[in-house]
Design a protein around this nucleic acid. Structure first.
Lengths: 163, 163
DNA sequence: TAGACGTAGA
DNA sequence: TCTACGTCTA
């Protein structure tokens, strides 16, 4: 258990292949896939802008993300969307959301990790899904009339299929 | 990252030595030292009773545990002792507290892991401190008049010193 | 200091 | 469903 400060990076992480499975968010951090232990969107500062490096889409938190043949619609962060105690608010185009928007503008690759419920329903597992590009994003209103950001990401071609 | 269901056990864990260091509670779980990712007291059911297997004493949560030459006074769990939002209540002799009391009665060994603030103040590190025996426990009142349990554990002899 | 797609077990 | 000595960044 040496502590290694993994440098953040855009794109592929050496040694990590599509389909690799991890048990904990801290493992994702340890191997350099995703450094945020509790946030879904990770990003790094390049010059003066912040660009997304990776997102984790985890089942079971009520985000209503969708996946269909390499096209993913990912819900932005903030606004207490998944809080059971605080009331929801408008999401803002800041932090991770802003980083994803910037990734789109700069056509920068984003790693996607999918957190799945385990078959035995004890905890989750995280699978590296490969590289995606943010194609568009928009703001919509949820049932309570609050702003929620949606990001459409498309899986780039020539990557191993997920089995 | 295979998921292995480590069997809980009392006493030494094969392959783990005094002084071994870990970065995350989830690592403690992975090697079989302590299976609770967020609780300080771990225990297992033997027959009809629950006996403590391990405790984690982590700095920085306001528990006021003490360590002096192999003698440790560990604060019980519950009562919202470390909550910033909920008001404190009386701790009860249940769950982990009850398990530690039972360990005392049965003279059962308890693994001790110490969570230390890292020198750079970024996160913590967990060091396996060896085997202890619960010598006594008592209930006291904190400044607000609430019941708090204290467990006195003594390190058993003939173990490598902690450097 | 607070916020964020955390974990496991009772 | 809730609690519990989580973990990092802004």
């Amino acid at each position: 258990g040496k502590q290694v400060n993994i440098e953040k990076r855009i794109g592929t992480v050496p040694g990590i292949e599509v389909g690799d499975v991890f048990q904990y968010k801290t493992e994702l951090r340890a191997v350099g896939l995703h450094s945020k232990t509790m946030c879904g969107i990770d990003y790094m500062k390049i010059g003066e802008v912040r660009i997304a490096t990776s997102i984790v889409a985890t089942e079971g938190y009520g985000y209503n993300d969708t996946f269909n043949s390499g096209v993913m619609v990912y819900t932005g962060e903030g606004g207490n969307v998944i809080s059971k105690e605080k009331k929801t608010e408008d999401q803002k185009l800041v932090k991770g959301n802003l980083a994803l928007a910037t990734s789109m503008r700069q056509k920068s690759l984003v790693r996607v990790i999918r957190g799945e419920e385990r078959w035995d329903h004890k905890g989750k597992r995280y699978v590296y899904d490969g590289l995606y590009m943010v194609e568009e994003y928009w703001a919509e209103r949820d049932v309570r009339g609050k702003t929620v950001y949606k990001f459409k990401l498309c899986r780039i071609p020539d990557q191993p299929p997920l089995t």
